[in-house]
Design a protein around this nucleic acid. Structure first.
Lengths: 216, 216
DNA sequence: CAATTTATTGACCAAGTGTTCAAATTGCAG
DNA sequence: CTGCAATTTGAACACTTGGTCAATAAATTG
């Protein structure tokens, strides 16, 4: 089998995978996510990733042909995870219900995939060199579509008037904050989002403030 | 003069500095901030910093004895900048006025020191290995003090009841977001916070939503 | 001006970097 | 079991990394 075939196989999972392939690719992706989250693309090393995935560096490169290729795979996966909650947002009955649900989902994602959130943050802070093409097309289009949902609610007098895109940005940061800045939060509060009680508190407060502000 | 003396001189600026020292240390700090912002500590290289500061690597190391020392200097500087707006927050006449002012200042800081904000973000995402001692003492104490201010307003019935710390976190992220995630925002909106019109829009929307929510 | 301190650099080093490759080992279908 | 494909690895690679150092050049000072 030619290397290009293996490549394509790794890219789209339509192609059949060996049992070992599936296992090792998963191990590598997890290890890579961890290291990329902590150190960013440039700061991450294949040695560290290979070590965390419990295999030799050449073996890692047998599954992903280069550091860059591995990073792109990780980012691809993360992009889908990241965007998933937003896709569900739509004009329903009650804007409060819809938005509450969206915020809840985003916070849950921060809790469930904190490393993914950090990889994303690192990529964006570094200027989004890899993600940019996707953000400029797919994300931009999605944001436009979802902004229209918010403006519909405004026209119906269900919510007050503000800039829809800024509101979406604010939802993203406030929710991802609990993953990306967990170290800072831990320093100040000695709590993590993993803590059940704290998790509930976050959900309650973020929704309260984003939806109703502090002057009720 | 012993090297330890030069060290101390670089650390606290009480000691007199040569004209050249002042110029070069500033050049280095600026270059370092830029590179650390983009790549994080591990991803940054002294070669790149030296090149950006327009000097040789050994010459850079003449002013800062190690990459670590340089990084700590940069972070020190940034910490002071970062905390400055919060220090001013206090029980005044009007909570809306006080908080509006604080938010405005934070957004202005994001605009004026976007690289500093990114260095901070990278440090925190990476687990705050250097900043942690400072966050656990100084920042935690400050947050506690400022939370008391918010609770005073609650007791006076001037604002509704919520968790003060979470509200502070939300102010931090929403404002810093426009610096840290500028690449993402640019992809979606094709605008920067540097743009005057966009800057005003950010201030207006962030304050509107954080203070009054979207249901007015 | 000389003398002394401060500033600058080229050459160098050991360790670490991503990547290659041929050879060895393992897994598996017939 | 046999043979072929999939997997694994040690050794090696060219290059980059943070850091040292002795020598040199430039400022400063008396």
């Amino acid at each position: 089998m030619l290397p290009t075939d293996r490549d394509a196989q790794a890219l789209d999972n339509k192609a059949k995978k060996t049992r070992i392939q599936a296992i090792n690719e998963k191990k590598i992706m997890e290890a890579a996510t961890e290291v990329f989250a902590h150190y960013g693309y440039r700061g991450a090393t294949l040695d560290q990733i290979a070590s965390k995935a419990d295999m030799s560096k050449p073996n890692l490169l047998y599954y992903f042909n280069s550091k860059d290729a591995l990073y792109r795979h990780v980012l691809r996966r993360i992009y889908d995870i990241w965007l998933e909650p937003l896709r569900g947002l739509d004009v329903g009955q009650d804007p409060e219900k819809e938005l509450s649900h969206y915020i809840d989902q985003k916070i849950e994602h921060s809790r469930r995939y904190p490393l993914a959130s950090k990889v994303w943050a690192n990529e964006i802070i570094g200027g989004a060199p890899v993600l940019k093409p996707l953000l400029e097309t797919d994300l931009q289009a999605t944001v436009k579509r979802k902004s229209r949902v918010l403006r519909t609610w405004m026209r119906q007098g269900k919510i007050s008037r503000f800039d829809a895109e800024h509101f979406l940005f604010m939802i993203w940061t406030t929710t991802q904050h609990y993953a990306d800045f967990s170290a800072q939060i831990a320093c100040v509060t000695h709590k993590t989002i993993e803590d059940e009680r704290f998790y509930m508190q976050v959900k309650k407060n973020v929704k309260k403030i984003l939806l109703h502000g502090i002057f009720e």
